[in-house]
Amino acid sequence: MDVGQSEGTGRDWFLAGMRGIASLPAIILMLSFVGFCAFTAQAGVPVEQVVFMTGIVWALPAKVILVGSIMSGANLLTAFIAVTLSSIRLMPMVAALIPEIRTSRTPTWLLLLLSHFVAITAWVFAMERIQTVPRQHRIAFFAGFGVTLVLANMLLVAIVYRFVAEFPPIIAGCLFFLTPVYFLASIWSSARHPVIYVALVIGLIAGPFFYWLAPEFDILLAGVGGGTLAWVVERAWRMKQRAGT
């Protein structure tokens, strides 16, 4: 849609969001879901449960944790806690996106509903494009992309499930790994402040160390530690600049 010619209607922007299914982030996520589908097929999870999981749990790492919990024989409460903890990482994404898409008249229930669709791919897609969308239509734009992305992946899982059971594990793993690689590359290329580069580098270096030290909490510790240390470094750098002036 040419924003310069016309702001369009909410329906127009919802359809514009739907067309994002053909974007690079969406395609990479769908390829990752093919790898996830192979993982669940080899784990013996029935296709109807995989489709349901795709729509309800949504974030791909959380689904992998859920399947792993099922395979290990963990009880329902343990699986619930593990999935919940893995999804806490999405809270900063929601906090960053909501101020960009809401208006003074946006109902809270709608924001809560749309927060379900906030994951790596939807967040990167929205943050890269939302500034070109008129504010009153940003909710419709994000909803069009988020809903379409979820439904498309549910349909994809239902179709390819029977064909991917014999995938070699290395292929399934590579497909699944596409999404975090793309996410890191997108964050690096779109970063506006040096502290983001520092946090990414520290997190990547600390990740293997924390995996060896505490594999159950490696991502959490690397993320919190990397972000905190990056904040300290940036604060010290700013104080030095101020002292120099």
Rank of each mutant, 00 (worst) to 15 (best):
V157P: 06
A140K: 11
R135S: 09
H193W: 02
P194T: 11
I202L: 15
F142L: 14
V198F: 09
S190K: 15
P169W: 09
Y182I: 01
H193Y: 06
H193M: 06
I170N: 05
H193G: 00
F183V: 04
R162N: 04
V195N: 02
F163N: 08
I196L: 11
P168A: 08
A158R: 11
I171L: 15
A191K: 05
T148M: 14
N153A: 03
A185V: 14
H137V: 12
F167E: 04
F142M: 15
P134F: 12
P180W: 03
V198L: 13
Y161P: 04
F177P: 08
V198H: 08
A199I: 01
L184R: 05
I187V: 13
Y197I: 04
A172M: 02
A165K: 12
E128W: 02
A172C: 05
Q131K: 14
L149R: 01
G203A: 13
A185C: 14
L200S: 07
Q131T: 08
P169M: 02
Q136S: 14
V198I: 14
R138K: 11
L156Q: 13
P168F: 05
I171N: 03
V198M: 12
N153W: 07
V157K: 10
W188M: 05
I130W: 08
G144I: 03
F142V: 11
Y161T: 05
F177G: 04
